[in-house]
């Protein structure tokens, strides 16, 4: 057996597992999406594109995409800015640097659904500490979870709190891997901290920034537990995201075939959107690097 072939033999088991894990569920979902499997009709019959035609007219599904976009983009941008700021803070020699690095990571280590319950209690409009604080500042208590805009903001806050540490971790790793020479050169040229950040640090961090943003966008677009616990998609449908809507249709209503069609459509849309976003980010951030 040639060396090339033997390589394949070693890779094959892993490849088979990977295909089984990734491809089979995907193909099965596609097959289910062409069936009428629901609470009254178990099994994989064939109904053609009926589910896909139905979802074209499902305004609740398309509206949930709009909310998802707002929630995901809003929270990831905030996470990026905060994460970058915190990473810059502990990148340089500061006192208790190790302590702060661990401290900033704690929210990410907590269980999302448990934290969502705790945040829900904090935002509780009559019993939660957030409104106690608002009252201390002599403002009227706010309807954090029962007014559309504030409910959206509350969920974004929870997401930012939970996932900024991920950004922090990625960006800190990026900062620590940067070569020292460009910074020395900038210092010799007399560049101040802002100029150094804009002309040296930020452009050199562009590739890792794009990676971190895309990874977080993928994760944020699947947001479910926070919405489920904090608002159940309400008030009305004001915080209902695509994944929550698919969850309702699939697991609550048990419309398995239709939920599969929604899931596959969601996957295609997300794949296209994220590819476009990655390209746009790369063009915006890497062009600046070349300039």
């Amino acid at each position: 057996m040639s060396a090339d072939r033997s390589k394949f033999v070693f890779v094959l088991p892993g490849l088979i597992v990977l295909v089984a894990i990734i491809l089979f569920p995907l193909l099965f979902t596609i097959r289910v999406s062409f069936s009428d499997w629901d609470v009254a009709r178990p099994g994989l019959d064939w109904i053609g594109a009926t589910n896909y035609l139905r979802l074209v007219h499902d305004t609740r599904f398309w509206e949930s995409f709009g909310r998802l976009a707002l929630m995901a983009v809003g929270s990831v941008l905030l996470q990026y800015m905060l994460g970058f700021g915190l990473a810059l803070l502990v990148w340089r020699e500061v006192r208790a640097r190790r302590f702060f690095r661990v401290l900033f990571l704690i929210p990410m280590m907590t269980t999302p659904v448990i934290m969502a319950v705790i945040w829900r209690t904090m935002f509780h409009e009559s019993l939660g500490p957030v409104n106690d604080l608002v009252r201390l500042l002599h403002f009227a208590p706010l309807p954090w979870l029962s007014q559309a805009g504030l409910a959206m903001m509350s969920i974004i806050t929870v997401e930012v709190w939970q996932w900024t540490p991920f950004m922090f971790l990625m960006l800190l790793a990026g900062l620590l891997s940067l070569p020292r020479e460009p910074f020395l050169a900038a210092a010799i040229d007399g560049a101040g901290p802002i100029r150094t950040f804009l002309r040296v640090t930020f452009p050199m961090m562009a590739p890792i920034s794009i990676g971190a943003i895309i990874i977080r966008l993928i994760e944020a677009s699947k947001i479910l537990d926070s919405v489920y616990v904090i608002t159940s998609g309400g008030p009305g449908t004001a915080t209902e995201t695509s994944s929550y809507y698919i969850f309702i249709r699939g697991l609550r209503d048990f419309q398995v075939g239709y939920a599969a069609a929604l899931s596959f459509t969601y996957l295609v849309i997300m794949a296209i959107s994220l590819t476009i976003i990655a390209k746009v980010l790369a063009r915006a951030m890497l062009v600046r690097d070349r300039a």
């Binding site: 409009e125 009559s126 309807p143 979870l145």
Partner: peptide, 11 residues
Amino acid sequence: PPGGDNFGLGD
């Protein structure tokens, strides 16, 4: 009560 339009059974 405040927040009463988002009360679950537990609330």
